[in-house]
Amino acid sequence: MINFIFLTVIFLIIIGLFGTMFKKNLIKLAMSINIISNGVNLFLISLGYRQGGIAPIFTNAPNLKMVSPTPQALILTNIVINLAVTAFLLSLSILIYKKEKKL
């Protein structure tokens, strides 16, 4: 059986690489970097999924079969770093637009 989640990951990463290679607009460049990062996040979080598992939180849990907690912790770090990089790229493009009057 074909693994559709990993196929989605591959399409996301290829679309993001296509955008970073062929687009000249700075906003589209930032969007492409975001798409690559989302693909990597989806890949990591689908590696740790266990069939029928719940989120690893013990407060009023229905059963004790849980998914892997380590990829979720690493993705939490990755999301915030991605946000910082995106804000920095957007502020740089604001600066370039003020100087050159075009993106």
């Binding site: 059986m1 074909i2 693994n3 989640i5 990993f6 196929l7 591959i10 990463i13 290829i14 690489l17 296509f18 290679m21 689908s46 590696l47 740790g48 999924y49 266990r50 069939q51 892997s68």
Partner: peptide
Amino acid sequence: SLIILFIYLTFVIFLIHPFGEP
């Protein structure tokens, strides 16, 4: 290079463990 990367990554699908059983 994009096409080569796509073909390589689609071959990786068959090597990785099935979804839901780490």
